Computed example of a mutant assay.
Amino acid sequence: MSLGALLESIPPLAVYVVVGVVIGAESLGIPLPGEIVLVSAALLSSRHSLDISPAGVGAAATLGAVIGDSIGYSIGHRFGMSLFERLGKRFPKHFGPGHVALAKGLFTRWGVWAVFFGRFVALLRIFAGPLAGALRMRYLRFLAANASGGLVWAGGTTAVVYYAGIAAERWLSRFSWIALVVAVVIGVGFTILVRERTSQLIAELEAEHDWDTLRGRVQE
């Protein structure tokens, strides 16, 4: 089976469900590649041979972001900052004291804007919902920032990739699958760069504060 035939066999509903579930789970606090999934789905929607709607992709991503963040907010509100201490012990690479201290510092400095712009930053995409709840941010303010940020991120990313995919298909014609590979590689590269930058910021925090101080900041 050729790649084109394989892509055409994918039901559009399955694409929307995967986009919504992955982004929702990432927003809930599970470290999944939501951005790569969104970029890939948006690129698939640019192929006219497939019955995948860019509006459907954007809507699924927005709903996943809003619902996932809202569930994460409820969990964080219920368990407080102690939630991150427990998660840090089980998943130190994603919820270590340095990660939490950095995210909390950004929330303390930017407030509700950290929720809005957090949708564009891998670290805050995972922390935004649970951390906002744990810090007792008012839910209506959180929801407004979360929904608007999710809409701009999902809609903007889908639109840019969709039109880029159309342009690529015109130029590459029979080799339009190359654009999908390039998009995924770019998405992976961007994710790695963001994680490296996050690690650098965490290392700087650790150099300035010992672990006991960081744990104290997490529990405050």
Score class of each variant (00 low, 15 high):
165 G>Q: 05
209 H>F: 15
209 H>L: 13
112 V>M: 06
165 G>S: 13
164 A>G: 15
114 A>C: 13
111 G>F: 01
44 L>I: 11
75 I>W: 00
216 G>R: 12
88 G>I: 05
48 H>A: 13
25 A>G: 10
133 G>H: 02
141 R>E: 00
65 A>S: 15
6 L>P: 02
80 G>C: 02
32 L>G: 04
1 M>G: 11
52 I>A: 04
41 A>L: 12
74 S>R: 14
81 M>F: 09
179 A>F: 05
220 E>K: 12
3 L>W: 15
162 Y>F: 15
173 S>I: 12
18 V>K: 14
187 G>I: 11
181 V>W: 10
83 L>G: 12
195 R>G: 00
16 Y>R: 12
210 D>E: 10
163 Y>S: 01
179 A>W: 01
64 G>V: 05
39 V>P: 12
84 F>G: 11
196 E>P: 07
58 G>N: 03
138 R>S: 04
179 A>Q: 05
167 A>R: 10
56 G>C: 03
213 T>I: 09
13 L>N: 06
193 L>Y: 09
149 G>Q: 06
99 H>V: 03
186 I>Y: 01
40 S>C: 07
126 I>D: 00
129 G>N: 01
219 Q>D: 07
86 R>Y: 09
77 H>R: 15
35 E>I: 12
176 S>T: 09
195 R>P: 04
161 V>M: 11
54 P>S: 07
58 G>V: 06
11 P>C: 13
29 G>H: 03
157 T>V: 05
216 G>F: 00
164 A>T: 14
164 A>C: 11
12 P>K: 10
69 D>K: 12
182 V>T: 02
152 V>G: 10
173 S>H: 13
119 R>H: 13
178 I>N: 02
157 T>H: 06
100 V>F: 09
12 P>H: 12
71 I>V: 15
49 S>Q: 13
73 Y>C: 11
162 Y>G: 12
112 V>G: 10
